[in-house]
């Protein structure tokens, strides 16, 4: 589902964030991506969502070579991917419902379908009763669950998460990771960047270890 072939990403100024990285994540896999900050985790995720393009090498996701996707097709490509952020990045002036609905509104779904799917997604993260509230009144764990509902509401085959438990205590972190595992159970390919190694070992899935822009362990 996600393949990197000798991918190098060099930023302006000559910093190489990724060096000759080759990885392969099969459909339905759940993989953790770990390493110190600055090891290239975020860069790898940014390349996967086409926020940035690789300097060298090929990335193949969902059967598409990303170097061949023209800019105008990028939005359509991104509709197949769900993203969860460390700081959840919910919109403060929108209700929980509107926040979760955003990926569906963006791709032009009808009103009734949006309602049905948003409620289904909120049900999965156990927040069905809070759809009319604003994010500020929710706890940190609840906010992150809203973020996850938003990431899966459009049923993406690939789910990416960048330090999704970075701001949460261990119990909440476990709960959040459990949610990712649930989505993985129904076939979603999940890639989670995290430096919480205890948590990673608790789940026992494959771990890719990045160091100085290179994959040093977990090639599988």
């Amino acid at each position: 589902m996600i393949e990197f072939h000798n991918v190098t990403k060099r930023y302006r100024g000559g910093v190489e964030a990724l060096r000759n990285v080759s990885i392969r994540i099969d459909a339905g896999e759940m993989v953790f991506l770990t390493g110190h900050s600055g090891a290239g985790k975020s860069t790898l995720l940014r390349l996967t969502t086409l926020v940035e393009r690789a300097t060298r090498g090929h990335i193949i996701i969902g059967g598409h070579n990303l170097t061949r996707i023209p800019p105008r097709k990028i939005p359509l490509f991104r509709r197949h991917i769900g993203v969860v952020f460390q700081d959840h990045r919910l919109l403060r002036d929108r209700t929980v419902f509107d926040n979760v609905a955003l990926p569906l509104v963006v791709s032009g779904h009808g009103h009734s379908e949006i309602g049905r799917r948003v409620r289904a997604a909120l049900d999965k993260v156990d927040l069905l009763g809070k759809e009319k509230q604003f994010p500020v009144v929710l706890s940190g764990g609840e906010q992150q669950r809203v973020g996850i509902a938003r990431a899966v509401v459009h049923k993406p085959p690939v789910l990416l998460a960048d330090e999704p438990t970075g701001n949460l205590d261990p119990d909440l972190s476990k709960e959040i990771m459990g949610l990712f595992a649930q989505f993985n159970q129904v076939g979603v390919t999940v890639l989670i960047a995290t430096h919480d190694l205890d948590l990673v070992h608790h789940f026992g899935d494959r771990v890719l270890l990045l160091r100085n822009g290179q994959v040093v362990d977990g090639l599988g």
Binding site: G62, H80, P157
Partner: peptide, 18 residues
Amino acid sequence: LTKAKRANKIEAKFELKG
């Protein structure tokens, strides 16, 4: 079904046309 097979059923190739 194995997980991988289920994933294949969900979507083999991303559709990039509306």
